[in-house]
Design a protein around this nucleic acid. Structure first.
Length: 499
RNA sequence: UCCGGCGUAGCUCAAUGGUAGAGCGGGUGACUGUUAAUCACUAGGUUACAGGUUCGAGCCCUGUCGCCGGAGCCA
């Protein structure tokens, strides 16, 4: 009886007879030889069946993509097999013979792939993303665990809405309406007063009707909350967390990042200290004529690039019209489609840029940053940027105003580079009972459901704060993905709940 | 909610208002080392749906539905 081993470990089994279990990823056959490409979640292995073994050969030839099987054979080194080792098959047990697997090893549209998300996960690219995601989660948890934090799970069902009830999902709770949590923060504050340093990691829910590449209705957030921490300390924690996550991806997931086409150089630059701006400094930056000149130069550069892309596309179309073989045609058509998409994106950017510049020029202190302002600011730096002290009026009631300027609060946002947007939002909390009550009154909030929260200020209140990191946006940034829907196994998007 | 784009074979896409097509995938056959193998043959269609204009509609018009991503809002 041969040992059953993982494909990843085949290199250590050269010349031995072993079995592997997995799924048929691809198949090619000649008149007297058949190649089965088997995947098992740890790697890909080419399995060779020769026609001399008539029964094995006909069984191998009849298998459809994604059939599940156990293959036994002698391991031999061969550079033509994906993992460097192939299996000379002596035994083949078909667990289930599959036919008409919907996802071929070819280009598909996003709608089709999303409808088949449960199968799409089997493709190498999606599996790579899930591995990076896993590594980032582990790195974040390890970072907190190693720094004296205690994991505290906060409830998912929460009574009444803290702010903007329209952004919460209502749920029937024994006849009452409650809501799916959009943060564990208030509960974490209670836990921080018990344990000092705490964090939670769980799903959060937003009912915002946002249909963009940066939004999910259900996403995972890592939230630390730290007793005695004031704003500067919070920034250090945020920086440390992000560096720990990027570092783990670089040290443990090089292969996956390469498969995803992510240039590691952009990630290797990520080191503390991150640039820090106050909101007011960011506004000055937006209004700075030097920035506008720079943006206009970039606009010219993009226009020039667009001019080079268009002949490139024409050349590709020309090649396409001359291509003979079907799959070459298909490949070229795919390249042409990709290029067309890049051109469309670039054209849209070029068209939008003057509007963005105009927005930046006219940006008034007190407004919140929109996506285009965030993009402009984050593009000025080659690593994540921290922005602090936003106007009090656009921020939540629990944020502590700055003692130096009560018009701003002691909050922090972190913008990821390359236009990936906000990945962290947090603040030092208001720890004074009277001030907190006043802020709640200003917001027109009923204090009754928050008496427990106010208790935290009645009994041994201390300065404290925390922040939340959006896992999926971080995964998208680190993997260099165009869309957040690939960062989570089963994305919940507005208008999509299947599968 | 608003703005814009798209909807043709299982998939990816073609088709001046005038005979609905190609590649991939499926099926059959050929081929001793393939790398999205290749070659030959073959099956496969209510052109999203409902109206309208026209001698004639995949194409033009109106409405509905679905999908996409941008604004607002947010991580």
């Amino acid at each position: 009886m041969a040992d059953t081993v993982s494909i990843r470990s085949l290199q250590e089994r050269l010349e031995q007879v072993v079995s592997i279990r997995g799924w048929l990823y691809g198949k090619r056959s000649g008149g007297r030889i058949a190649f089965l490409l088997v995947r098992d979640g740890t790697g890909l292995c080419q399995c060779v069946v020769e026609a001399a073994q008539a029964e094995l050969f006909s069984a191998a030839e009849s298998l459809g993509q994604e059939s599940s099987l156990m293959v036994t054979g002698r391991v031999r080194a061969d550079s033509r097999s994906p993992g460097g080792a192939e299996l000379a098959v002596t035994g083949l047990q078909v667990l289930q013979s599959a036919s008409d697997y919907p996802i071929s090893r070819k280009a598909h549209g996003t709608d089709f792939l999303m409808e088949h998300r449960h199968l799409w996960l089997r493709s190498p690219r999606q599996a790579a993303i899930l591995r990076v995601r896993h590594t980032l989660i582990r790195a974040a948890r390890r970072y907190f665990d190693d720094h004296g934090f205690t994991l505290v799970d906060t409830p998912i069902l929460s009574p009444g809405a803290a702010e903007g009830a329209g952004t919460l999902f209502p749920v029937d709770y024994f006849g009452d309406t409650v809501y799916l949590a959009q943060t564990g923060q208030l509960y974490l504050e209670a836990a921080a007063m018990a344990l000092g340093r705490v964090y939670c990691f769980g799903p959060t829910f937003r009912a915002e009707k946002s249909k963009t590449r940066r939004h999910l209705a259900e996403f995972w957030m890592i939230e630390p909350e730290i007793a005695f921490a004031e704003l500067p300390e919070l920034m250090t924690w945020a920086e440390g967390l992000v560096c720990a996550m990027v570092g783990a991806a670089l040290s443990e997931r090089r292969e996956e990042l390469a498969l995803l086409g992510r240039n590691p150089a952009a990630l290797e630059r990520i080191a503390p200290p991150f640039p820090r701006l106050t909101y007011s400094q960011a506004v000055d930056l937006l209004r700075d004529p030097a920035l506008h000149r720079k943006l206009e130069q970039e606009l010219e550069a993009d226009r020039a690039r667009l001019k080079t892309l268009i002949p490139e596309l024409a050349a590709l179309d020309e090649q396409l019209s001359r291509a003979r073989q079907g799959w070459q045609q298909d490949k070229l058509a795919q390249q042409a489609a990709d290029l067309r998409e890049r051109i469309r994106d670039l054209e849209a950017q070029v068209a939008q840029r003057p509007i963005h510049i105009e927005h930046a020029r006219n940006f008034a202190w007190g407004e919140d940053f929109g996506g285009d302002e965030e993009t402009i600011i984050s593009r000025q730096f080659d690593r994540p940027v921290l922005i602090t002290e936003y106007p009090r009026r656009i921020k939540a009631f629990y944020m502590k105003p700055s003692p130096a300027n009560p018009d701003v609060v002691l909050n922090l946002d972190m913008l990821a580079p390359e236009g990936y947007g906000e990945i962290i939002g947090g603040s030092q909390r208001e720890d004074d009972l009277a001030a907190l009550r006043q802020r709640m009154a200003e917001e027109g909030m009923n204090p009754a459901p928050y008496e427990w929260y106010l208790d935290l200020r009645r009994y041994g209140s201390v300065p404290h704060g925390g922040f939340g990191l959006g896992l999926e946006r971080t995964v998208a940034w680190i993997c260099g993905l165009k869309h957040i829907r690939e960062t989570i196994p089963f994305p919940r998007l507005m208008g999509r709940i299947y599968p």
